[in-house]
Structures are given as C-alpha cells and as structure tokens.
Simulated scan of single mutants.
Amino acid sequence: MKTLCKLFSQILFAAAILCLSSGCDEDDDGITPDASGQVNLTNASSLGEILVDGNGNTLYYFTRDVDGESACSGTCIQSWPIYYSDDLEVGTGLDQADFGTITRADGDMQTTYRGWPLYYYSPTSDGILAAAGETSGEARNNVWYVVKPAYSLMLANAQLVGHDGINYTSDYTEGEAVTQYFTDVNGRTLYIFINDTRDTNNFTSEDFSNDAVWPIFYVDVDELPGTMDKDEFGVISVFGRDQLTYRGWPLYYFGQDAQRGENKGVSFPRPGIWPIANLDTPEAP
C-alpha cells in the first residue's frame, strides 16, 4: 500500500510540473485563450504595423480564404488555430466595423477582418502558439501572411472558374487546380489584358463607356504581402484617371465578379484574353 501511495504521489507531482510548464488554463487544443477579447496594432519591425490579440500574439490570414469562408480545417488547425472573440474590443487605429464573425463548416465561430478569417500560428503544430510578438508564420508556404491594417493588395489562392462555369488551370486550359493571384483588400480579383502594351491601356474608351465591363483599378501601393515587390508597380494616366500597373501591365477588375473570390473574367470573352495578375505575370511587352 505504501508503494502504491508513493507511486500515486509521484504521478501527481509529475502532473503538477507538466501543468506549470504547459499552462493549465489552456483549452483542449492547447490554445492559450485571449481573456481580454482585444485586437490591437503593434509594430513588427520590418513588417510594420500588424494585428495582434490582447496577449500580443500575431494574427494571420490564409490566401485560400478569399471567398470569406475558412479553408483551414482538420490538421491545418493544429498549425493555424482559429481566432475568435465573442466580445471583441479593438485598439487605437482599428475600426470595429472592419471585424465580423463567420460560422465555420465545423460549427465553430471565427473572427474576420475585412472579410478574411483570422488565425494564430503554432510552429510545433500542436496548438501551442508562437511567442507573443513573433511573426515566424509570415509568408509560410506563400499562403499565410500577417494581417496588416491597410493592405493595398492581397494574395489569394483559388480554383479559377470562368464566366462559362468551367474550371481552369493557370494556363487557361480546362482542369482542377489552385492558382494564386492578386486581389484588392476585399478579395476582388485583378486582371491584365493581353492586348495592352507596357504602360499603355489599349482597352478603355476615352468616354469610359466600356469601363463597367473591365473597370480600371487604382490604389496607392503602400502595404503588401511579403512576397510582393512594391517596385514592380507603377501608375499610368488613362484619359485623366489613374490606373495601377504591375510589371508594366495595366490592372483591371471584371465587372461581373459580383462576389469576393470570383474570377469569372478568365474565360471572357474566351480563355486567356484576360489573365489574372500574379507573381508569375511576365513583363509587359
């Protein structure tokens, strides 16, 4: 009996040590809850201002979530635990109206920022978060990026589905594939026109009568995801209006992309005439 009592005492002592080292206030997934329910801005050195929770843990977005729904589930959540607060308070420099909530496919709730679901990063893939202030998840696999308060452009990864309802690959042949491309901050797809030449818009009419079909796109380029190069963007004047260029290609929306994440323009009027803009876009002729 004494031996059993001694053994039981040893087990309790070991459990206490484990509790102290790992944190007994963690939930079943090993995620340290953010009791404050806050999202704040902090300066992350070369990355500039980024969003963190009330404990200083960095928040991330997933390029696969361009449609506003979470594409991270199963084992993905072990490395990228979801962020959710049911009583969110935002810090100075942030707008409460930019935050929302979605119900995930698994039934859990998740907080969003400008329509992008928010995540943490767990380097050990066991739900234990990276230390407060760390940004080691930035550009992970070229699909995970820190959340900034004012991105100029964003990256998305999705299946290309044309205006004709057909799925396309990145070379605009029919098929199933996930392609990365540029969007605005609200997840709206950006395109180039193959008949344009360097820094020259050959589509838009002088009276802008066709602008509703392919609206020209412009934004001041300031904050970008880490794999994008600000120096590759420029600005041209199109009949008195500014248009952003990438590697010399003028950038456009497609008027019939009504929902975030849609990329119907890839098949209009036929595949390859209006390619998506992305990091593989060559220099304009």
Rank of each mutant, 00 (worst) to 15 (best):
L4C: 03
L7C: 11
S9I: 05
Q10T: 06
Q10K: 05
Q10D: 14
L18R: 13
C19I: 00
L20K: 01
S21H: 06
E26R: 07
A35L: 12
S46D: 10
G48A: 05
I50M: 01
Y61K: 03
D65S: 15
V66I: 08
S70F: 08
A71I: 00
A71H: 11
G74S: 13
T75W: 14
C76Q: 04
I77R: 14
Q78F: 08
Q78P: 01
P81R: 05
P81H: 05
P81K: 02
I82H: 06
Y83M: 04
S85T: 03
D87H: 13
V90N: 14
G91S: 04
T92W: 04
G93K: 14
G93R: 11
L94N: 03
D95L: 05
Q96I: 08
D98F: 04
G100L: 02
T101M: 02
I102M: 12
T103I: 05
R104P: 03
A105Y: 09
A105R: 09
A105H: 10
D108S: 14
D108C: 04
Q110A: 14
Y113I: 03
Y113H: 10
R114N: 14
L118F: 10
S122L: 05
S125A: 15
I128K: 06
A130D: 14
A132Q: 07
T135F: 00
V146P: 03
V146H: 10
K148E: 12
A150K: 10
Y151H: 11
S152C: 10
L155E: 11
V161W: 06
H163Q: 12
G165Y: 06
I166G: 01
Y168S: 02
T169P: 10
A177P: 03
L190Q: 08
F193H: 12
I194L: 11
D196A: 06
T197H: 03
D199G: 09
F203D: 13
F203K: 04
F208T: 00
S209I: 01
N210P: 00
A212R: 02
A212Y: 07
I216A: 07
F217G: 12
V221R: 08
G226W: 01
G226T: 07
D229G: 05
D231F: 03
F233E: 10
F233K: 07
F233D: 12
G234F: 04
R241M: 13
Q243I: 00
Q243T: 02
T245A: 09
R247L: 07
G248K: 05
W249H: 07
P250A: 10
Y252S: 11
Y253I: 00
F254I: 01
Q256G: 04
D257P: 02
R260S: 09
E262H: 01
R270S: 13
R270G: 08
P271H: 03
G272T: 00
P275M: 03
P275Y: 02
I276K: 10
L279D: 07
T281M: 12
P285I: 02
P285E: 09
